[in-house]
Computed example of a mutant assay.
Amino acid sequence: MKALFIGGTGTISSAITRQLVEQGCELYLLNRGTRSGNLPAGVNLIQADINDEAQVAKLIEDHTFDVVADFIAFVPAQLERDYRLFKDKTKQFIFISSASAYQKPLSDYRINEGTPLSNPYWEYSRNKIACEDYLMKLYREEGFPVTIVRPSHTYDERSIPLGVHGRKGTWQVAKRMLEGKPVIIHGDGTSLWTMTHNSDFAKGFIGLMGNLHAIGESVQITSDESLTWNQIYEAIARALGVKLHAVHAASSFLDACSTEDYRGGLIGDKANTVVFDNSKLKRLVPGFTATTRFDQGIKQTIDYVLAHPELQTEDPEFDAWCDKVIGALEAAVAAVKQ
């Protein structure tokens, strides 16, 4: 198989890249080369900015592919560019959408590909919906061989997956845990969430590549493991070797007192209970099973982050915000008890 990834070095795509190379795929990555030092041997790098359409067209002039996958498209205009570049050069075009595009609030916590797409809280999700609409129109009217993939919360060894964190990443929350400080969990922590290790996601994704039955289809790829947010934070604390000190706060309250996009990221996504029905994926990719349990995967992540100081980006602004929020909640409790 000859494949081209636009991107190929992110949380989701890096695991797919590694597994494809191990399987002997002729894999090309089209990106700016800023992470090329981490690429496995055997990957062919086409170094360019995908937004420079003329340059990319010239670089791929003599190539055709079995699969082209765009991991970094977020708005329809980027897919219009992709269509111009690849409409006659690939047998399958895979677009990475998002499970956050599913209807919010959910009418049924059990999600499958037939769940309506509607998210009034998050522009990111609405843009992904618009991208899906554009591609499916091309499939119906032009025969463009599209497959849409919807990941949910997928994580790797480089970043700790969390619900509430600052704009500089999630390390500051882990640092608070290590220092014995309280950390904020949105809601009461009992809503269900799904975490998927990127190595498991990669197995499902590769099974869709070159798969005739996946053309014209939308497919979600997630683990079947459901966890409460309390369980997620407890697992992270255990991996760090510390006791969890949790403070719960309503998602609407966190959104109201923050400059972060908690309206989209929480109210439009993580504050909702989600349980995924992966029956469609398992029909298309017989034998697919997500095998990395969260407590095992997060231990690998914590060990890796602790061993790599460059991943430990501190966020004093978020840290101070957490202290203010927790102080305000404690003051409110004290005032009511008077």
Rank of each mutant, 00 (worst) to 15 (best):
I232D: 05
H248Q: 03
A290I: 12
I184Q: 01
R84Y: 13
H213S: 12
F201L: 15
G37N: 04
A328L: 15
H213V: 04
V43K: 11
F276Q: 13
D62T: 14
L227Y: 04
D49T: 14
I206F: 00
A307M: 00
A250T: 07
S199I: 10
Q55C: 02
K128R: 08
N230R: 04
S107T: 15
E22D: 08
D277A: 13
A235R: 00
L254D: 02
P151Q: 08
S252E: 11
R110N: 03
C257Y: 07
G207P: 00
V285K: 09
C131R: 07
L329V: 12
E217F: 09
A77I: 05
T64K: 10
V67Y: 01
D156R: 15
L29R: 09
S258E: 04
V67T: 06
Y109E: 13
D200T: 11
G210V: 13
E260A: 12
R110I: 03
L30R: 14
S100E: 04
A249S: 07
S98F: 03
T291F: 03
W122R: 15
Q338F: 07
F5L: 05
S191Y: 03
Y304M: 04
Q231C: 09
A48R: 10
G287H: 03
A320W: 03
K324Q: 08
P182H: 13
V325S: 12
M177P: 00
D88H: 04
E260N: 06
K280D: 06
G327W: 01
T273P: 00
A57M: 01
E142L: 02
T190L: 14
P316K: 02
I111A: 03
Q312E: 00
R293P: 01
D52A: 14
S223C: 11
E179Q: 06
G327S: 02
Q55M: 09
P151G: 13
L29P: 05
N230M: 14
S13E: 08
E225D: 07
D261Q: 15
R18Q: 12
D295A: 05
L29Y: 05
S251F: 08
G268R: 10
E330I: 15
A99V: 03
F201D: 07
L27Y: 06
Y155G: 10
D88Q: 15
G166D: 13
I16T: 13
T9H: 12
G268M: 10
Y28K: 10
T11Y: 01
I46M: 07
D255M: 09
L281F: 10
D295Q: 04
S199E: 08
F294H: 08
A48D: 00
G187N: 13
A239V: 02
I6Y: 01
Q47I: 15
F95Q: 05
A237I: 05
T154S: 06
E314P: 04
G216K: 10
Q103K: 11
K299H: 15
V242Y: 08
A328Y: 07
D70T: 14
Y139D: 09
V336H: 01
L306E: 06
D52R: 12
E310W: 09
S152W: 06
H308Y: 04
G327N: 07
G287A: 13
K282A: 05
M1W: 02
R32V: 00
V146P: 03
I12G: 02
A48Y: 03
T194A: 08
S191G: 11
A54D: 11
I184E: 10
G297N: 10
D224F: 12
L178V: 01
L20T: 13
L79K: 01
S152V: 09
K337P: 04
T190M: 14
Q78G: 12
